[in-house]
Amino acid sequence: MTLKSLDPRVKRLGIPEEWDTPLSPKETLDQFENYEAFIQVKEGKALEHVGPVHAPNEEMAFLFAKEQYSRRGMFCNALCVVKTENIIGTEFSDNGISIYDAVTAQPSGIENQSYEVFHLLKRGKQHKYVGTVMAKDFEDALVVAKHTYPSQKPVFNVWIAESEHILTSNEEDKDMWETLKEKQYREAIDYKGQDRIKAYKERMGQA
């Protein structure tokens, strides 16, 4: 017996009404690994964390992130993705204490690796890109970041990733963001109904 449905598409699929076997559980990573996506909404603004995507590789992660986080509204000027595994995060501090206060070491002076640094300035908000540092390793990068990018406000959490692990959109591919203007039908403002309601009420009033 195939499943009965009002949906012609479901009917065409010929799904059995009962399965003979239970669903075999998903294997680990059936949904792929995680990437974190960052978006620059406007030229001159910092790249900002927007959320994760699951993808089988970097290019797919970029594509999914573009679809998930830039399909409408806020204009997107640049996008980058980093495999979550490749981001090292500090602990979270709270109550006005900066996580950098606990960092007491001095920079090693060895600058053979390039790292990108992200700060969280308020709990509940997004991490923002602050800049690049040259350092020996992740711990050293945190120390160098403390000295290179001092913050007026307390920093609650820091993310650091090796520069080469970040896939960023190219400046010359910028026209890929141009499509947003053609997608007005995705915006609430495109659906105005008050005139029709008014006309209806007038019609009813006369009737």
Partner: peptide, 28 residues
């Protein structure tokens, strides 16, 4: 419908999965 999507899409996901990947939960 959900189960069908899971089962019929499984081979695609399997073909795409890179070996030596490990699971890490999203950060935020």
């Amino acid at each position: 419908v959900r189960r069908m999507a899971e089962e019929r899409g499984r081979w695609v996901r399997k073909a795409l999965l890179a070996p030596k990947t490990k699971y890490v939960a999203p950060l935020a």
